[in-house]
Design a protein around this nucleic acid. Sequence first.
DNA 1: GGTCACTCTATTTTT
DNA 2: TAGAGTGACC
Length: 738
Amino acid sequence: MGSAVPHLYNAGSATGVVMDVTHILDPLNDRQREAVTAPVGPALVLAGAGSGKTRVLVHRAAWLIEAEGVSPHGLLAVTFTNKAASEMRGRISELLGSSAGAAWIGTFHGLCHRLLRMHWQAAGLPQSFQILDSDDQQRLIKRVIRSLDADENRWVPREVQWFINNRKDEGLRAANLHPDDETEHEFKRIYAAYETTCDRAGVVDFAELLLRVQETLIRDPDLLGHYQRRFRHLLVDEFQDTNEIQYAWLKLLSGDGAQPFVVGDDDQSIYRWRGAKVENLQRFQRDFPNTRLVRLEQNYRSTGNILAAANGLITHNQGRLGKELWTEGSEGSPVHVFGGFDERDEAEFVVDKVKAWVDHGGRRDEIAVLYRSNAQSRVFEEMFINERIPYRVYGGLRFFERQEVKDALAYLRLVQSRDDDTSFERVVNVPTRGIGSRTVELIREYARDNATTLWRAAIALTGGDLSSRAANSVQAFLSQIEAMAVAVKGLPMHEQAEHVIAAAQLEAHYRSREKGERGEARVENLGELVNAARGFQYEEEGLTPMDAFLAHAALEAGEGQAAAWEDCVQMMTLHSAKGLEFPVVFICGLEDGLFPHQRTMTDPEGLEEERRLFYVGMTRAMRELYLCYAEQRRLHGMEAYSEPSRFLGEVPRELLEEVRPRMNVSRPVAMRYGGGGALAGDDAGTGLSLGQRVGHPKFGEGIVVTVEGHGAHARVQVNFEAEGSKWLVLQYANLEVL
DNA sequence: GGTCACTCTATTTTT
DNA sequence: TAGAGTGACC
């Protein structure tokens, strides 16, 4: 890697000063250096897992500033998560020995938010616009559906939300849609009504942040020109995860002059389901014809065997850009495979290995247990608790998403922006103050009929059509918010939060509603919220501290779990493991139907994404990788039997080592997960196929929904017309093919 | 307006 | 199995 001779560089034509850039180049290998020092111009770095992707980005930024004489002011670096953004900022400053201050470094959403705050007028937003998180968004959509008298059973809020966000991610407004059928028509109608409601209330959802910026820049060529001239250097992390609008946004900002430097890995694209377009990697090369392509394939993380196993697996995917990881390190141990009897057996195995690791002087936080879906964590948690092994589960409810925190925030938001319907609705009757569903319904109706917000509707109604009792309650609520606004004016933020929480009597509310620990925990969280407000540092200009804090709460929902002070086993889904590394990794629940997940197995693209997910999981491991499955597993309260994951059969067999092969398995080990497994729709030697109509002597007629296993051991799931869905062992079922 | 019992459903997740 | 959501009832 590094050389003893200092690297000198003629720093940018402007300065003519010769800089010592040793600290930037020394820690890099040849490929990384090639990427970092690429001539100013579009560049695409295909960075395999563990190949130093972040390092390249960070060093590129430093290189541009120190060697090319680029002002940090002209630098824009984009990531997907707040964590990645702050890491990048920190590392760049560290490398520069000074702050990267003027550079814009942040998430797509964070940067767009910043632009909207600066140019709220151009964007057509109220100055105090508020941000909806997905929970707020879903509630609002639900309300919109009701207000349209659409059938809630047919138009499921979740699905509508999905639809709207997908359209926005594609850059499409309701007005841009041309529905072909009734369903699409209705979606469009709801979308349009949702847009109107958001505009009226001055609220913006996540996807809107991007779309609104995009539209504003297109509408205002001066503004666009300004930013195009300013940001000549764009750095993008995790490029394979960009969606349509993010790509369009980058391209727009690039204009003719900017030099995007993007880093990504098509093999780690695991977010297609939420709109990410791997194709953007190829599109980039087409759209920026002189793109310099650099591949980073040297891996600094895993042993040779682990890499070979991962490489072997991923070759089963079609249409890859092509990349093969290698290492100068040792081969290490083989990849261990464990087949448990059931999920408890699987968990016990992990427990044993954890204990052994710790007994040999290892730390628990060097171990990660990865699984496909969150529900799988339970067995491990129970087992870890029994065995007194500290653990930490990632994911789950985040601080700013907690009910009590959101209630308090809603008060603060109302104080800030009276028209925020989402917040109004949330707290009109929390704590209960005699404003029942009937009254709220009247307010909604009035708001809808008069095209106004709930707040204004409430004001209008107190002087009119409400019963005197209801009118009094509503009036009391309105006055209370106004009083809060007055009382809070000019106070430091944490005192504002304190005041609002006290005035709304939220503590008493939670204490009385949930006795004992749960209620107490909520009260504590309210205290934490005050602390968060106290410690909040804001640097954005042109925005009140409170607006900044509220935006922060929405954009950065906080940690999933309290920070682990103890040395804990790390547990998380494969998705959340991306970007992390651990000496010891367990990938659990490797069974067909669970991983690859049932719902992806019928779709070849979905299956490839699952395979990439497995690849991501494997490449998290530095030294020891355990692949585990269970033959039988309790799922949704029912016992289910399944075959080991087809992916196991795609890992070169010579790299695998069976741990404690089960004695009662008659098939030879090599046959257990051979040859890629049966594809869905295959009859797997049972003579039955999915969708087949069958008759049963007792249950009548039905349709085969699932086929598992082979020959006489096979089990089928049949959806009977009369009896519903049943699992049957083929050997005894006496099914008649119809 | 609050409680209880019943039904329904059941990836992955950041912002 | 468990959690959310709903509707009936007090």
